[in-house]
Design a protein around this nucleic acid. Structure first.
Length: 734
DNA sequence: AGCACGCCGACT
DNA sequence: GTCGGCGTGCTC
């Protein structure tokens, strides 16, 4: 050992050592030395060396129990000039890590998703008029000086624009000392909202609901309210009152929305009420904007954020309310890396921060309903539509009695009503939750079925693109002209309908109508938003869409909604199938009838007696929930099972069953394990080559966590990472 | 999660 | 003879 390195060790020992969470799936924080003269506190955001690179980490709480090998110990590179994560935020991140059985470093990383935001935003250069005047005056110079002569600081381009000159005039004046350069703080990303800007006049049930909600919000402290109101009942106006009250109390507000519902129309509604738009937070924010929003949220400048689920991990300076709109929406579940449901974690964050949270839905999740029934969440009902918006008439079309013509999928009843809507100059919406042209293609000669080479699923024909695709792994190939098995040409047949095929059928019946297909694979989020606005303006007659038409957009001229196959999704093995179908169908039929125009929704079904169909047409959601809660209890064991999804890599169903057997032995307290195949597992999982998912049912969170740990330690050998999602148990943490 | 190291197949 | 596939292992 050289003298140099001895000195280095002495030096390291003299330093303080702190735990730092690094963005890596390590089970606990790593230890780093704090260099002489550097000040850190728990929550400090720091840069540390990790292997060959520098990463962003967070100084964590406590001391490291077992000392690391001093040879390994490295020093913190720098502390960012940025508010440390608060005590509450750290508690929250720890809680989420423990609950989801995820590495804490990966959870902490979710709070730091803003690459270059940790150093303060640079001051921007501004110009201020001095007493000096130019030797030669020109009309342009006069205008500039007159414009700037108000004591304000201007930006170079702003002043040029305001004075109607080019910026070279200003450069000339600056050179002569007419302007001095001063530095000013960067402008806020959004203007401050004004809680008194345009108060809504609420009446009747809406007013009562707002009063009930304000009672909890004004009381301060933790509470969960569950606003349960049908589409068009004015839920948004009601929770806007809670937002206004929170703003008046000087606190920040987070509104969570499913990504697709973060539309311009929502922002405008907010602006109409509060005079300015909320800051947005979602996956396709421009990086610069993202950094500004993150920074200003941590410093408290941004008062209201409307964001997708990831916004829940923003380190607010002074958060005082979370609203979770469309709380039942499956988009709140993150199903890769850290598995969590933002709706449930919002409740936890509010509990830790001791402030109110408001869950909002026309069709609450069964979990939230149970929590409401048990008195843990405060139910607030909005039973009627307001204004002149009538509910649509809803009916079932029994497909056994009204079959479509050969080769078609639309019953004569549906076609007749589409025609009527067109005659009235109104719009029709056809909903089918299936992308592409046909879900299965086969050869009429040899019976060959096109199957994904990587998954065991059928390839879906996309005729617009001339491709057959796997909807699970993204595999795609050109649609062949001949059968790859027997070589026969022109004998491939499409089986079953997708939206493209329905559009084709509609075109055949209504060749003069403007028909548009809305499907997530045909356009990006931006393009989609534009299309939705265009449709709302009446630039299409018939819209054929997948489930994205169900979310958060209103079409005032849409007076007929036809559900092409209401039965899709009822029998896919997921214990939530009926609930999901009910929520989806409610949302789609809710798109109609908000204008005072008479509107109609028809559902094509082969199971008109099914409880979901009955609930939709009768409007009796109470009976449906009661039944569904009962079914869920039977399926998952009383008092109300907890579901954990455990992702297991298995190439065949038989392998998955082998894993399940091993898991049952490893964890006797787990009450049930069911296997979901590729058709039920989300895309993200399949991409990671995990084809089968085991749904594990247990009674209590502690049981489930113990189970997962046992599994990780001694369970069957599994390839890749094993991930877990726990859905909240109504009896968990309240 | 990244990233390096390392060992076998098709190419300038 | 090299470029590049992804399997394995490590990071305070």
């Amino acid at each position: 050992m050289t003298e140099d390195s001895t000195d280095l060790f002495d030096d390291l020992f003299a330093r303080r050592v702190v735990p730092v969470l690094v963005p890596m799936p390590a089970p606990k924080a790593y230890s780093y030395a704090v260099p002489e003269g550097m000040a850190v506190t728990p929550g400090s955001i720091v840069q540390v060396p990790l292997g060959p690179r520098q990463v962003v980490g967070v100084v964590w709480d406590g001391v490291q129990d077992d000392a690391v090998d001093p040879k390994k110990l490295k020093a913190i590179t720098q502390v960012f000039d940025c508010p440390p994560l608060s005590r509450d935020m750290r508690t929250f991140l720890d809680w989420v890590a423990a609950y989801t059985v995820s590495p804490p470093g990966l959870v902490a990383r979710m709070a730091l998703r803003a690459p270059a935001a940790f150093d303060p935003e640079p001051m921007i250069e501004g110009l201020r008029l001095t007493d000096t005047r130019p030797e030669r005056m020109t009309p342009a110079r006069e205008r500039v000086i007159a414009t700037a002569d108000n004591g304000f600081t201007w930006t170079r381009s702003g002043l040029a624009h305001a004075a109607g000159t080019s910026s070279s005039v200003i450069d000339g004046l600056t050179a002569q000392g007419v302007f001095e350069t001063v530095f000013m703080p960067p402008p806020p990303v959004v203007a401050a909202p004004d809680p008194d800007y345009a108060e809504h006049r609420l009446e009747g049930p809406q007013k009562q609901a707002a009063l009930d909600l304000l009672e909890s919000v004004d009381a301060g402290g933790f509470s969960v309210s569950l606003i349960d109101g049908i589409t068009g009942s004015g839920k948004t106006e009601v929770y806007f009152e809670a937002i206004a009250a929170t703003l008046k109390a000087g606190k920040q507000v987070l509104i969570l929305l499913p990504e697709i519902a973060l539309t311009a129309s929502f922002m405008e509604r907010f602006q109409d009420r509060f005079g300015s738009k909320p800051a947005e937070w979602h996956s396709d924010l421009a990086p610069r904007t993202r950094e500004k929003v993150w920074r200003q949220v941590t410093e408290g400048g941004v008062r209201v954020v409307a964001g997708a689920r990831s916004a829940l991990f923003l380190p607010f300076e002074n958060l005082g309310l979370i609203v979770v709109d469309e709380e039942h929406d499956p988009a709140y579940k993150q199903e890769d890396r850290v598995f969590y449901n933002a709706r449930d974690m919002a409740v936890v964050r509010a509990r830790i921060g001791d402030f109110p949270v408001v869950l909002v839905s026309a069709t609450p999740s069964v979990e939230s309903r149970v929590n409401g029934d048990l008195g843990r969440y405060k139910p607030i009902h909005l039973p009627t539509r307001f204004g002149d918006a009538a509910l649509p008439d809803l009916g079932l079309v029994d497909m056994r009695r009204h079959p479509p013509e050969r080769g078609g999928f639309l019953s004569p009843v549906l076609l007749r009503h589409i025609g009527k809507a067109l005659e009235r100059g109104e719009q029709a919406l056809l909903f089918l939750n299936r992308r592409g042209y046909a879900p299965l293609t086969l050869c009429r000669v040899c019976g060959h079925r096109f199957q994904c080479p990587d998954c065991s699923t059928w390839l879906v024909e996309h005729r617009f693109r001339g491709q057959i695709q796997c909807h699970h792994c993204g595999y795609a190939e050109r649609t062949p002209e001949s059968c790859p098995e027997c070589g026969t040409f022109d004998h491939l047949v499409a089986c079953g309908p997708g939206v493209e095929r329905i559009a084709e059928e509609v075109d055949r019946h209504f060749p003069d109508a403007r028909t548009i297909v809305l499907s997530s694979d045909l356009m990006g989020v931006k393009r989609l938003r534009l299309e939705l606005e265009a449709i709302a303006k009446g630039e299409a007659d018939i819209v054929v869409g997948t489930q994205l038409v169900a979310k958060g957009h209103n079409f005032p001229m849409m007076t007929f909604v036809g559900i092409v196959d209401a039965d899709i999704g009822l029998a896919n093995g997921d214990p939530r199938a009926a609930e999901r179908t009910f929520q989806l169908l409610s949302q789609v039929t809710g798109r109609a009838g908000r204008t005072g125009l008479k509107s109609l929704g028809l559902l094509q079904t082969y199971q008109p007696q099914h409880p979901v169909m009955q609930a939709i047409v009768s409007g009796d959601s109470e009976a449906f929930y009661e039944r569904e809660i009962g079914e869920r209890e039977k399926a998952l064991l009383p008092p109300f099972g907890r579901l954990a999804s455990i992702i297991v890599s298995a190439d065949t169903r038989a392998d998955a069953e082998g894993h399940a057997r091993g898991l049952r032995q490893a964890a006797p307290r787990v009450s049930g394990i069911s296997i979901l195949g590729p058709a039920e597992a989300p895309l993200a999982l399949i991409r990671g080559r995990h084809r089968f998912r085991l749904l594990v049912h247990g009674r209590r969170n502690s049981d489930m966590q113990a189970f997962v740990k046992t599994m990780l330690a001694s369970g069957p050998k599994m390839r890749g990472s094993v991930s877990v999602q726990l859905d909240i148990d109504p009896q968990s943490f309240l």
